[in-house]
């Protein structure tokens, strides 16, 4: 391709000369790679190296092993639990919503409306989202009050607390569900109506259609999107921080406190904490990319 253009783009007078022998084409992408190096690759690489060093700069695995201390390990576990629960919940509800809007026999205006609202809701995150849920399910929130006044049921007496695992998961799902709708819509579009009709003609029940046709095709995008949602929630800081302050010990909050004031009393342990996070989000993203590759075979 590049060869062809070099032949046809004949330098006319005054036009930028296109060098034909030694290609200088790479110069055009130098700014981009310089930027990526400065603001993506080097900062991350430095943290990774820092996580593998002791205070004197010698290579060590102590920091990595220290991540398995009970307090740090529990913060990773809470993060993983919240991220997994909100990803699975968001993926299930998002899947039903997207399927209902696309193949559920609803009027044509439902789908674009759902997509627009998903675009908005998936971007409504961070600090304001925490405020919204405090006003809804906090101790004096509207839904909490309504449940007490109408049904005489106090969710806080029943053990619910917004500033906990359940509350944070419910809050995260507010952006996870619409994100799932946005990512999964193309995959559901790929489920051809003919497959369902052919299955019905051959006498398959709805269950058999899902078991033998739809799910075998849909599982890679379903699982892949769930992994993406997981990584999305795992790196979140602002919502949790505004909602719970530092009362819920998730790993991003620990890292935030560490950056603010070295609460772990060991800078290198802080770098290792970041290294662990990169590993977890990296693995789930890699699995997502692999699964997306698999799903593209069918869903063209």
């Amino acid at each position: 391709m590049a060869q062809a253009s070099r032949v046809t783009v004949a330098p006319s007078p005054g036009a930028p000369t296109v060098v034909s022998r030694v290609s200088w084409a790479w110069v055009g992408v130098v700014p981009f790679f310089a930027f990526a190096l400065m603001f993506l690759i080097l900062p991350t690489a430095l943290l990774v190296v820092g996580g593998l060093q002791d205070a004197q700069g010698r290579l060590t695995l102590t920091n990595i092993l220290d991540l398995f201390e009970p307090t740090i390990l529990s913060s990773y576990l809470i993060s993983i639990k919240v991220s997994a629960a909100s990803a699975i919940g968001g993926a299930l509800i998002g899947f039903f919503l997207a399927y209902a809007a696309i193949s559920g026999g609803l009027p044509a205006w439902v789908r674009p409306t759902l997509m627009t609202f998903s675009g908005v809701a998936s971007n409504f995150a961070g600090v304001p989202l925490a405020f919204a849920f405090l006003a809804t399910l906090g101790r004096t929130g509207l839904v909490t009050a309504l449940l007490v006044n109408v049904f005489g049921f106090d969710i806080y007496d029943a053990g619910f607390n917004l500033l906990s695992f359940a509350g944070l998961t419910l809050t995260y799902m507010y952006f996870q569900i619409p994100l799932m709708v946005l990512i999964l819509a193309p995959a559901i579009d790929g489920l051809k109506r003919e497959w369902r009709e052919a299955a019905a003609n051959l006498g398959a029940s709805t269950w058999e259609y899902w078991r033998y046709i739809a799910l075998p095709i849909l599982w890679p995008p379903l699982l892949g999107s769930t992994l993406l949602l997981f990584a999305n929630a795992f790196g979140a800081v602002a919502t949790a921080y505004a909602l719970t302050g530092s009362s819920l010990n998730i790993v991003t909050i620990v890292l935030y406190a560490q950056i603010r004031g070295d609460v772990l009393h060991n800078p290198n342990l802080g770098y290792a904490l970041a290294l662990g996070m990169i590993l977890i989000t990296g693995l789930s993203n890699a699995a997502y990319i692999w699964l997306r590759g698999r799903s593209e075979r069918w869903l063209r």
Partner: peptide, 8 residues
Amino acid sequence: PAIVLVFG
């Protein structure tokens, strides 16, 4: 994650 980048 953004928090890791800014740490870097």
